[in-house]
Design a protein around this nucleic acid. Sequence first.
DNA 1: TTTGGCACTCACCTGAGACGAGTGCCAGGA
DNA 2: TCCTGGCACTCGTCTCAGGTGAGTGCCAAA
Lengths: 340, 340
Amino acid sequence: MLDDRKLEVLRAIVEDFVSTNEPVGSKALAERHGLGVSPATVRNDMATLEDEGFITHPHTSAGRIPTDKGYRLFVDRLSTVKPLSGAERRAIQTFLEGAVDLDDVVRRSVRLLSQLTQQVAVVQYPSLSRSEVRHLEIVHLAPNRLLLVLITDSGRVEQRVLELPTVVAAEEVSQLRQVFGPRLHGAKLIDAAKALEDLPNAAPHSLRPVLTSVLSVVLSTLVERPEERIAIGGTANLTRNALDFPQTLRPVLEALEEQVVLLRLIGEVNDPTTVHVKIGEENSVEGLRSTSVVTVGYGLSGQQPVGGLGVVGPTRMDYAGNISSVRAVARYVGDLLAGA
Amino acid sequence: MLDDRKLEVLRAIVEDFVSTNEPVGSKALAERHGLGVSPATVRNDMATLEDEGFITHPHTSAGRIPTDKGYRLFVDRLSTVKPLSGAERRAIQTFLEGAVDLDDVVRRSVRLLSQLTQQVAVVQYPSLSRSEVRHLEIVHLAPNRLLLVLITDSGRVEQRVLELPTVVAAEEVSQLRQVFGPRLHGAKLIDAAKALEDLPNAAPHSLRPVLTSVLSVVLSTLVERPEERIAIGGTANLTRNALDFPQTLRPVLEALEEQVVLLRLIGEVNDPTTVHVKIGEENSVEGLRSTSVVTVGYGLSGQQPVGGLGVVGPTRMDYAGNISSVRAVARYVGDLLAGA
DNA sequence: TTTGGCACTCACCTGAGACGAGTGCCAGGA
DNA sequence: TCCTGGCACTCGTCTCAGGTGAGTGCCAAA
């Protein structure tokens, strides 16, 4: 059904439409790309492609534009990887290496990604639940006030201030440290609850009331509410081409403000090492049905990823370029976390 | 020149235009508001107002719309405070009180403010340089690795991981704590450099190399680079009325992505206790010349504010309502920080 | 299977005309 | 001096008709 030339025609249509944003006609197509056949032949191929649902035309006397299905075929079989230039790679590396802490890494990644791709960039903070505890510090702020600081191997730091009903002595605090420390160190956060299970029994009796308070904060903060966060940037890129989102800009912006929605978007990757592309109607998120989303997981190589990142843009996007950029940034972020 | 009735006409024009987004004509205006005069009289008043530059009309046969100058007069002299309902106040309070940490307070404030005002909300994180140090914790992560955690009275927590060239012993770390602790506690961050000036001389000789490393990180992090942050939300509200930003949506979004620009915007308040309104061309930020910005400082009552917050929207906005909302949220945030 | 030819469709542009909201101005009245 | 009704005028908007052209679909011939 779809011989090589028809695929070539589809590729040409996608490429032309992506760069010009105008429906592409048979004549222009036959001329511009060295297909070696006449416009009439191209028209026949187009008819076939349209029957199969890969392209469509807005109205009778207009050129063709790719459908979601057409983009899908293009992405899966027709687009060739577009490797980044050495300069781009160096730019990524130096820009990310300037980061001072995790927050900064994430912010820089967002900025970088949105500038590289000229799309909206989305970066998830390293997930707490998949990280390992590196350290739990208990700080004695005031007689009846403690600060809990939890540091994970992904560089993330969570802190909570805790008011105690009773006054607590300095040595009790150091006892607390000794009780929590060994149990948590190196534990996956997701397993933390189990690691702390027998704690009330193992601890000295006098420590019980304080311990219970601390324990409940630790658990609620880190286990029950493994709060996930997302950074986003480059929304101005959505307005770059007014034609891309005539009426649909609003739902897109709304969807992008819903952290929960974005998390689902990024979390949907099943195979975390490869780049995932959701095109138009393939998106489960209502407001993003008019966009395409390119995502990938990042993290320490060879392990479960600790987060995800990606870009959101019009279905009419440079898939090859964006996939490369997303992959590259993810790799550098992963390296950075491993080194930190 | 501008008698009471003319001012009343201006107020009516602003109110009508804000609610309908359509140029308002003399007839409709005379009818809808009980001015007690004929449309012809209103027309005369309008002519005067236009001569004075308070209103204008898009084309000859259209009604009048307020100019920036008109809005300015309205805000300064004509608008009456619109107190929030008790329900609204309670909603603000309960919503903000659910916050678990500073990040959460800021995120909730942004969300709250954008929903209350139906505009873009901007909230600055409490400024480091104006806060006081509550605690500096030095955590011994590994033999040659330290974590510095700095807690301020505004609830903000900054952390930095520090690689040392040499191995450092546990007692040296506690010595460090004793050296830094008393000097920093209660000091304004902006004065921290001075407080630490004589530190290298005062400390035990053996501690010198480590101390120098730690000191430089503390100084660079907290004094030289008092990194300021901004949270933003509700950008989808910019698209609520397509007519508000026909072509100018892009520069607005771009300006809103520039943290530096926003900080300047919020920082421009000279008298921090009152609400400031910048209307259209009054804005120093290029991209925001088509918007109005309502800002106010927040912080512990009676003291210098530690940050600012506000909303950005079309010049055609409900100034009275937005001013009330901004003021109310700022007060609750201030209270929350004081209590935490 | 490809190609040239040809009729056809239909969005887009343009100009003319009708419409009407709203204005500016003026003369008369309180 | 100020307000009012009246009236001519402006000008954006809407609608309709006709022309234009890019692009298509189909067919017959190579």
